[in-house]
Design a protein around this nucleic acid. Structure first.
Length: 709
DNA sequence: GTGCCTCGAGTTCT
DNA sequence: CTCGAGGCAC
């Protein structure tokens, strides 16, 4: 694709002059979504573009301008949600209708009991009320969401980051286990979630076939060999050419569901097991090891059975998944940041291996933290060759007593991140490994702050490692998520002087990119389109991307939610340097205390940051915060719960309030809008009366919650 | 003051 | 994923 010179940076400034009214804008956005989708298809799938790349970019920009002006009109199928413009060679990215969450892990029977106890507490259940769980093997494959509309398969997405997955519809259609149509009567929309995997025997046969094919082609050393069935399944599913997927023996097992429409009454059953049986009846495979266990002990017995049968199973598994069987309880339990409170993955013990620690290197993170990394003699653990493992900090090195040359025991915690668990070398007392006192990248002093474990480089922005890491953070998946702009690109651009700070990313020109790569027209156009798509970024992602200490994704979201826009957050933080009232305003936000407030104030007081901030805003217009909460009688209000609750636990009441767009405070003040008082309420109730604040009881609260559904 | 709980930051490999 | 630490309830 060919892109015109980058748009003038003031294009967003001039936009308001020719903005249509809301109804016209809605119609235009609808037309743009359809048109851009059509051009994407023509370009990527049919290789027959009808318009020039400059014209395509103009459509994308117009879409971004309208969405920035009318965030409430952003469509579910908006091109801006399709992260980048599906660069050639990659699969299109599509937002999930319901996030695909991960699961909390447990490694012992005690943790499983604790999980049930926590659910019981949250639901305020009597100690003798049984909590039935489903239990089934956790297949080691890759999660996938299959969307059926009127019984017809219309879309398949990989898990991706949970919010946005890759479109693998064409590939999934080649998998025999996955029917094109559901048999019987399914709801209007039903998303089946499950695991795409490869059986162990098929994996061995596939590797043998690939080897034989390479030999026939004359060079067996070039044969592609997969390390394990999971990688083989992932590599086979994420193919651009679906005919390759068709030649790979993939299978599928359902384990849950996502969006179901109509919302009321369409779910076929009252329990997890009912629905899984319905899915099986529709013709989609469900594990024959799925059972309902009456309680935690019965679930643990099933775990023992599955663990004993593990080697005989036709596929790899890495544990057993338990789910609270009753769907009404699942709904009440809800979810924490990225995992439901009603499901648990009970993992098998991690596989261990021995190897030699060759040396200890120091890495510099974006905050300046120096992290020691163990370089290891390569060793296979859990099907993957590991050569690096983090040692976290100086304390950890001291605890393990490791030095270069030592034999160590390695395990992959939770089957992912390798960690050194034990040092096998126990010879005479030796001089310990000493932590450097200067930054290996910029030679600034490296110091350990009072009361902290970490040692940090004091170089700040003069340290090239910190600058690069900050840039990398800015474009990372949780922040702006610019497709095609990874660590390597950022590093190259930085070293060649194309980029000094985040705003420079938006000034990259086609000429600059083309000068770096022969025949790089497609690459340059895709990269510029991906950057262009982020000129009106999500405000929380944008704030997170700034890399302010102690402000991660959740805190960033809380801040923009509280203040409405990122600009307002910056304004309050700037004023707070001199005005105690502004500081109090920051600390009034749930989850913000003195340390986080100070970090925000420091950031916006720092000269370099002020310059970078103004520079960024000359290129980018973050969108205002859009609440995904439902309207209710208490939206935007500050609530205080006091006294005891009969049908609700404290946690659950708080979760309900947040879902309705309210803030929950701990004590009654002039800022409180409503007090929900149960029996035994004392001083808070009295204070509410003094201040003339409305007080309701639990039944009235339940009515407000019910009215909002 | 103490003890959860949640969040942030850094991390592996394909 | 794990660890440390900040925030907040008790």
């Amino acid at each position: 694709m060919i892109t015109a010179a980058p748009p003038p940076s003031d294009c967003r400034m001039t936009a308001p002059a020719d903005l249509p009214d809301e109804a016209t804008a809605a119609a235009e956005l609808e037309r743009l979504a359809a048109e851009i989708a059509r051009h994407n298809r023509l370009y990527h799938t049919e290789d027959a573009p009808e318009i020039s790349d400059a014209e395509y970019d103009a459509l994308m920009r117009r879409n971004a301008v309208l969405e920035a002006a009318y965030p409430q009109l952003i469509r579910a199928d908006s091109p801006s949600r399709q992260v980048g413009a599906a660069p050639a060679g990659h699969l299109a990215k599509v937002a999930h209708a319901r996030a695909m969450m991960s699961l909390e892990n447990a490694f012992s029977a005690e943790e499983v009991s604790e999980f049930v106890a926590r659910a019981r507490r949250f639901l305020s259940l009597a100690a003798d009320e049984p909590v039935a769980l489903t239990a089934e093997p956790k297949i080691d494959g890759l999660s996938c969401s299959l969307r059926y509309e009127r019984g017809q398969l219309v879309q398949a997405l990989t898990r991706g980051d949970g919010a946005v997955g890759e479109d693998v519809t064409a590939n999934v259609r080649t998998i025999g286990d996955i029917p094109e149509r559901l048999s019987g009567s399914a709801p209007a929309v039903f998303e089946i979630r499950g695991e795409v995997y490869m059986a162990k025997a098929d994996f061995v046969a596939l590797n043998a076939r690939l080897l034989a094919e390479a030999e026939a082609a004359g060079d067996a050393s070039k044969a592609r060999q997969f390390a394990n069935p999971r990688n083989a399944a992932a590599g086979s599913l994420r193919q651009k050419d679906a005919s390759v997927t068709a030649s790979r023996p993939l299978r599928f097992l359902a384990h849950g569901w996502g969006e179901v429409l109509p919302a009321a009454g369409a779910i076929p059953g009252d329990t997890q097991l009912d629905v899984m049986h319905a899915i099986a009846d529709w013709g989609v495979p469900v594990s024959d090891l799925l059972i309902r266990a009456a309680d935690a002990d019965a679930a643990l017995a099933h775990y023992a059975r599955i663990e004993a049968a593990r080697a005989e199973l036709p596929f790899d598994i890495d544990g057993v998944v338990y789910k609270v069987d009753r769907l009404d309880w699942q709904a009440r339990l809800g979810a924490v940041a990225r995992a439901p409170r009603w499901a648990l993955a009970h993992k098998f013990p991690a596989e261990r291996a021995q190897t030699t620690l060759e040396r200890i290197d120091i890495q510099v993170g974006r905050t300046g933290k120096l992290t020691p990394v163990a370089r290891l003699t390569p060793v296979t653990v859990g099907g993957v060759v590991v050569t690096n493992a983090t040692l976290h900090n100086a304390d950890e090195i001291e605890r393990l007593g490791v030095r270069p040359g030592d034999r160590v025991v390695l395990q992959r915690a939770g089957d992912v991140i390798p960690q050194i668990v034990e040092n096998l070398t126990r010879d005479a007392p030796r001089a310990p490994w000493t932590f450097p006192t200067r930054c290996p990248e910029c030679d600034s002093d490296a110091v350990r702050e009072e009361g902290e474990v970490d040692i940090r480089c004091t170089g700040g922005l003069i340290c090239p490692a910190q600058r690069i890491e900050r840039l990398r953070h800015f474009v990372s998946r949780g922040a702006l998520d610019i497709e095609g702009l990874g660590l390597k690109q950022i590093e190259d651009f930085f070293h060649d002087g194309l980029i000094h700070g985040p705003a420079d990313i938006f000034r990259l020109s086609e000429e600059q990119l083309l000068a770096r790569k022969k025949d790089g027209r497609v690459w340059a156009a895709n990269l510029l389109a991906a950057i262009e798509a982020k000129r009106a970024p999500d405000p929380a992602r944008f704030l997170f991307g700034l890399g302010i200490r102690h402000v991660g994704s959740v805190t960033a979201r809380d801040l923009v939610k509280a203040f409405g826009t990122v600009e307002k957050v910056a304004e309050v933080a700037t004023r707070a340097a001199a005005e105690p009232e502004a500081r109090a305003e920051l600390e009034a936000v749930d989850g913000i205390g003195p340390v986080v407030a100070e970090a925000l104030i420091d950031f916006f007081a720092e000269e370099h940051n002020r310059i970078a901030w103004a520079d960024l805003l000359s290129q980018v217009r973050p969108m205002p915060f859009v609440s995904e909460q439902r309207d209710s009688a208490v939206s935007g209000q500050t609530l205080v719960f006091t006294g005891s609750m009969e049908t609700l636990s404290r946690d659950e009441a708080k979760a309900q309030a947040e879902m309705l767009g309210a803030r929950v405070a701990g004590s009654v003040s002039a800022r409180t809008d409503l007090v929900i008082a149960g029996p035994g309420a004392g001083s808070k109730l009295k204070k509410a009366a003094e201040l003339g604040i409305r007080v309701i009881d639990e039944a009235e609260w339940a009515a407000i919650v019910a009215a909002a559904r």
